[in-house]
């Protein structure tokens, strides 16, 4: 065995090397990140700013917490990679790769490490006509892509296998409550049992609001929006 002093110095040195390279160095680089601001000539306020802090009143924060509580991030990533790493963008999961600046207002970025379900990093991204679609998943009728809206999310949360038979996403009955059908079946109802209807709780509504707010397609100077293959030619 080495002398105790050598041993402790060496071990502590190893820790210092690891910390400075893996924590302090990136921290000095990332901690100063600011939103990208565009000022037009002669204007008093910026004409464009990204990312923007999302208001708490939207229930966004609560929705994010529900996302974490139920461990959605174990199967759904929010990490679009450059085309050289995989066909994420080609597949319509995002307009460009995600970068550190996208997450400066996120308490804990839920990048995720495993894809047992599709990436959700741009779930609220709208196409040129202002509609959100599952661009790539229409198992039943390819001509009718499913529209991504709150009602769609409620159905998925209540029973993912109702639409996609092979899905192994957990059902979350805990996010729904039984209510009397008063004036009529609510458009948000996910199931009707006799005179009762299953309606989303506040948690489910906020989770849907959170998911629909996910949009990281804004052009950034370090991550230009990927051009399609045709446009390149």
């Amino acid at each position: 065995m080495d002398k105790p002093s050598t041993l402790f110095t060496g071990i502590f040195g190893a820790f210092l090397v690891s910390t400075s390279v893996m924590v302090l160095l990136p921290n000095s680089q990332l901690s100063g990140l600011q939103p990208q601001i565009v000022w037009e000539e002669g204007q008093n306020s910026p004409s464009d700013m990204y990312p923007v802090k999302i208001e708490h009143s939207l229930g966004h924060r609560h929705g994010e917490r529900i996302y974490v509580e139920n461990g959605c991030y174990y199967c759904h990533t929010q990490d679009i990679r450059d085309p050289q790493f995989g066909p994420d963008i080609e597949r319509g999961w995002g307009a460009r790769r995600t970068v550190a600046r996208d997450f400066i207002y996120n308490d804990t970025p839920l990048l995720g490490a495993t894809r047992m379900g599709p990436d959700l990093g741009n779930y609220g991204w709208r196409d040129s006509e202002g509609k959100r679609f599952w661009r790539n998943e229409q198992p039943n009728d390819p001509t009718k892509p499913a529209v991504r809206d709150a009602a769609f999310i409620y159905k998925h949360l209540f029973n993912p296998r109702a639409r996609t038979e092979a899905s192994n996403c957990p059902s979350n009955p805990g996010l729904f409550e039984k209510h009397d059908i008063g004036a009529g079946v609510s458009p948000d109802a996910v199931a009707v049992e006799g005179k009762k209807q299953w309606l989303p709780t506040a948690a489910a509504r906020n989770l849907a609001a959170y998911l629909l707010s996910l949009d990281r397609s804004h052009e950034l100077k370090e991550a230009p929006v990927a051009k399609s293959k045709e446009a390149k030619k």
Binding site: L33, A100, I104, T108, P109, L111
Partner: peptide, 10 residues
């Protein structure tokens, strides 16, 4: 309170 991807790095 260090938001952002530093948490993932750490």
């Amino acid at each position: 309170p260090t938001p952002g991807v530093m948490k993932n790095v750490v």
